[in-house]
Design a binder for these strands. Structure first.
Length: 560
RNA sequence: GUCCCAGUAGCUCAGCUGGAUAGAGCAACGGACUUCUAAUCCGUAGGUCGGGGGUUCGAAUCCCUCCUGGGACACCA
């Protein structure tokens, strides 16, 4: 990475180590191991461009007060290739470094040069990672929880890609097992009801309106010709038709949401190819199963769970858990070095035994990472929108897209960290005002585009070669440049922490700094040199806003 | 009962792999458009970081305990 901040930071770290060594050599410090210390950009800019806690962490073993240690280190400190202007000892023993005021200015040219690649880092080193998300049952519509999962998963995948991982997005289709049987029964009931037969929906059937529509579509195609055939045959045909339609609908909703998968993986495939059976055999062979009451159990307790889990029911059919183990084993067999699952928090009980099963099969449980996300609360008119699956009263992804638009929806679903409940305020997401963070950010981008096109119209910058960035000396400009420079670090952090909300927040802050600058100074001014420098600055801001928004799946319009 | 998540400004939330005076947006209050987009900006006010103990140079952050809210504990998925 040739990022200015990283280079400078590493330079200071090395120089600090050398300084401590020199102090030890000249007996100013006792022989000691250098503990872990940090060199960070302080939150307060009054604390310099970099600050280190090295004196404080050395204090104990050096048997000297932190500020004395700091003095010793500073007196031995030497650095040549980084423009440090001042070093001071502050607070309880921090050493603060102040760099030349325009040390970050070159980042503007880096950004313009790298364009949409600016911010790309390589902490992933090409590691093969799979992100699996949404994977909702293909028996219904996508709801708010699925929507949050989609936004989070897609954004995490994008960020990991940008951070140098080799990422694949996957959707697991639960097209087998109990709930499909159940689905088939419900479809059959609706089918028969349509032709006037007096059958009623089972208590645990699918009561949603959407499957009536699906059955109507089926009837439009096939009419009543399955009225008289054997029930098993009828259900089979119905469920084939319905699954195809449902999955196509889900795929379309997700595409409308800006989410595109690399792979759709069928659970049925696992059963048909004997992968589930083979996996259970393998667990048996390894001694992690036993039989009890006619069922085959997995010894989850050996892996820290509080109870064991059934793999094959007494009736001979494998459980969802068994299929899921086979599925995850298959992921590793496909060559993924790291696997990320995004699940609703209501599945958290599943995590421990899934990891246990992976360990039982000889995989590292750390290679399977489960991100749990908390629930979504919809708020409209200051009231929580009550939803219930039983009555079919749910707000779907398509409906929310229709109502608030894709950009607002994408942004709102990732603006909070996954492990906090998300309050989704529909009125706010819809409002085209300054309260709405999405518009705030997009507006900054549009404003810049407007300035750039105006400058282009004037045409007097054509024969200028390189901007003189030293002309950018206002505090608002320096703050803006610093924010731009920090973007690659922000990407690294967001990737490591699987935290898209950090990028969302970053974009908002960057837009804020731009708006402040915009209101305080004009970009296009009579001084052509200064205009040219400011145009370079705002062009860089535009690029970074675009790149950041891209990572969270939000567009950056040129005009609004 | 066991486990997971949360509790930070009036509201919604950052900060949590320990750092300096705890932040942002909204709401409230007071200002700024003869200007490249006012969908903007500037300023003011707002806090026992759920309570209590501990660890240490230093705790919103780590440990213990208690309280509150949400969720999970099926031969469902």
């Amino acid at each position: 990475m040739n990022n200015i901040i990283e280079l400078s930071r590493n330079g200071i770290i090395e120089a600090l180590k050398t300084s401590v060594q020199k102090a030890i050599d000249s007996k100013m410090l006792p022989m000691i191991e250098l503990p872990v210390f940090t060199v960070e950009i302080p939150r307060e800019k009054e604390h310099g461009d970099f600050a280190t806690n090295i004196a404080m962490v050395l204090s104990k073993s050096a048997k000297k007060p932190p500020r004395d240690v700091a003095k010793t280190i500073v007196s031995n400190f030497e650095i040549k290739d980084i423009p440090i202007e001042n070093i001071e000892i502050a607070g309880p023993g921090f050493i603060n470094f102040y760099l030349k005021w325009d040390w970050l200015h070159p980042v503007i040219e880096d950004i313009i040069e790298q364009g949409n690649d600016y911010g790309r880092v390589n902490i992933g080193k090409g590691k093969k990672v799979q992100v699996e998300f949404v994977s909702a049952n293909p028996t219904g519509l996508l709801h708010m929880g699925n929507a949050r999962g989609a936004a989070l998963g897609d954004s995490i995948a994008s960020i990991l890609q940008f951070a140098g991982f080799d990422v694949e997005r996957e959707y697991y289709i639960n097209d087998a097992g109990n709930q499909i049987e159940n689905f088939a029964k419900s479809l059959e009931v609706r089918y028969l009801q349509h032709f006037g037969e007096n059958v009623s929906m089972p208590e645990d059937g699918y009561h949603g309106e959407d499957i009536i529509q699906t059955v109507n579509n089926f009837i439009a195609e096939c009419g009543d010709k399955y009225l008289k055939v054997d029930s098993i045959e009828r259900r089979k045909i119905l469920v084939e038709f319905a699954l195809k339609e449902k999955i196509a609908n889900i795929e379309k909703s997700l595409l409308d949401f800006g989410v595109k998968y690399d792979n759709w993986f069928s659970e049925r495939h696992l059963h048909e190819k004997g992968i589930v059976d083979a996996t259970i055999e393998e667990l048996k062979k390894r001694g992690y199963t036993y039989e009890k009451e006619g069922a085959v159990w997995f010894k989850a307790r050996e892996f820290g769970d509080d109870k064991d889990e059934v793999l094959i029911r007494a009736n001979g059919s494998p459980t969802y858990f068994a299929a899921d183990i086979a599925y995850h084993k298959n992921k590793f067999e496909r060559g993924f070095e790291h696997v990320i699952d995004i699940w609703g928090a209501d599945h958290h009980g599943h995590v421990k035994r899934m990891k246990g099963a992976m360990r039982a099969l000889g995989y590292s449980p750390d290679s399977l990472e489960v991100i749990l996300m908390q629930l979504v609360r919809l708020v409209r008119g200051g009231e929580i929108v009550r939803m219930s699956k039983r009555t079919g009263n749910v707000v779907t992804l398509s409906e929310i897209l229709e109502e608030v638009g894709r950009d607002a929806a994408r942004y709102f679903f990732v603006m909070r960290s996954a492990d906090t409940h998300l309050e989704f305020d529909i009125d706010l997401a819809k409002s085209q005002s300054n309260d709405n963070p999405v518009f705030y950010i997009q507006y900054a981008h549009a404003r810049i585009c407007s300035i750039l096109s105006q400058a282009a119209d004037e045409g007097k910058y054509k024969n200028l070669d390189k901007p003189n960035l030293a002309l950018l000396k206002e505090q608002a400009e320096i703050d803006l440049i610093k924010k731009l420079a920090v973007f690659p670090m922000e990407v690294s952090l967001a990737a490591e922490m699987r935290a898209p909300h950090r990028i969302a927040k970053y974009a908002h802050e960057l837009a804020g700094l731009f708006h402040s600058f915009y209101n305080a100074y004009r970009v296009i001014v009579p001084d052509v040199e200064l205009s040219f420098a400011r145009l370079a600055l705002v062009r860089a801001v535009k690029t970074v806003i675009f790149n950041a928004l891209k990572l969270v799946g939000v567009s950056a319009p040129e005009r609004m």
